[in-house]
Simulated scan of single mutants.
Amino acid sequence: MKINALKVSALALAALMPLAAHAHRLWMLPSATVLSGNDPWVTVDAAVSNDLFYADHFPLRLDGLVVTAPDGSAVKPENESTGRYRSVFDVHLTQDGTYRLAVDNRAVFASYKVNGETKRWRGDADALARTLPANAQDVEVTESEARVESFVTRGKPSVGALKPAGHGLELVPVTHPNDLVAGSNAGFRLLLDGKPAANVKVSVVPGGGRYRDQPGDTTLTTDAEGKFDVKWPNAGMYYVEAEVRDNHTSIEQAKSRRASYAATLEVLPQ
């Protein structure tokens, strides 16, 4: 499906809003997170939605989709499809261990005026200079690094696919992401460009919010080493998100950067 310019512009604006004001969340939801058997597959929904884990707004773009196998190699997702409200893809789990499913998008957002009319643009850094008109005024450029993840394990959990990439905001599990149990604590670390992300607020949101009067969100803060602990109140799917804004940009035109992270995790019953 082709995404028209109006929708891209609207999505770009939403991506630049603070997390506290987000009406929409970006997520991936695997059909299962722990599998066994001789020939397992997993189907993954990916969307931008108003209600968490319900595709009701816009499909998540899969341009930056990377599937990492337990041995660290890249796996080609199969049967990719984008519909009106969600994208879908399949992963064939041919190895034992844990797979990382990640949409890692880096982009530049620009706002400028031409003859008094405000224009907005989204694309990669290399295209920015070619795109801006010579008579552009009031140019504001923001760099964005957005990572959306989930984890799937065939058989026994492993850690080979969980190594950080060293850029943007990333989650490093202390407790394995496919070994989460209701009523127990789990530890994680946030990294920013490979270094501890200290004093960052992390939101933990249980799924099924449309069936509750209260959203049930929990806000935590990372310590000096980027660590935070979560005690899971109940079994189910959870959404973990965080955001950092700074001026550590990689292109001269950008004066600010927004680095965001989101993960879907499954918590199993005791």
Results as ranks from 00 to 15, higher is better:
Gly166Leu: 10
Gly155Asp: 05
Leu11Tyr: 07
Ala14Lys: 09
Ala186Leu: 01
Ala146Leu: 11
Trp41Asn: 02
His22Asn: 07
Glu117Thr: 15
Ala110Gln: 14
Pro206Lys: 04
Asn185Val: 15
Ala165Lys: 06
Ala23Gln: 15
Asn247Pro: 00
Ala69Arg: 00
Asp104Lys: 13
Leu192Asp: 11
Pro59Gly: 05
Gly236Asp: 01
Leu268Tyr: 14
Ser73Thr: 15
Asp63His: 14
Phe89Gln: 03
Val108Glu: 05
Leu132Phe: 08
Trp232Leu: 01
Gly160Phe: 04
Ala186Ser: 15
Tyr211Ala: 14
Tyr239Lys: 10
Val152Gln: 00
Ala102Lys: 12
His248Ala: 11
Ala198Tyr: 09
Ala10Thr: 06
Ala254Leu: 09
Leu29Cys: 11
Gly209Asp: 03
Val88Met: 11
Gly208Pro: 07
Leu52Ser: 01
Asn105Phe: 14
Val75His: 03
Val75Ser: 04
Leu35Met: 02
Phe53Asn: 08
Gly160Arg: 02
Ser184Leu: 10
Val205Glu: 09
Asp126Ile: 15
Glu170Ala: 05
Pro30Val: 01
His57Arg: 08
Leu93Ser: 03
Thr219Gln: 11
Pro196Ala: 05
Lys255Gly: 13
Glu143Asp: 14
Phe228Pro: 00
Arg210Ser: 15
Val202Leu: 03
Ser87His: 00
Asn247Ile: 09
Leu169Lys: 00
Glu80Cys: 12
Pro70Gln: 04
Lys119Cys: 10
Ile251Leu: 13
Ala129His: 06
Asn247Gln: 07
Ala14Arg: 01
Arg147Tyr: 13
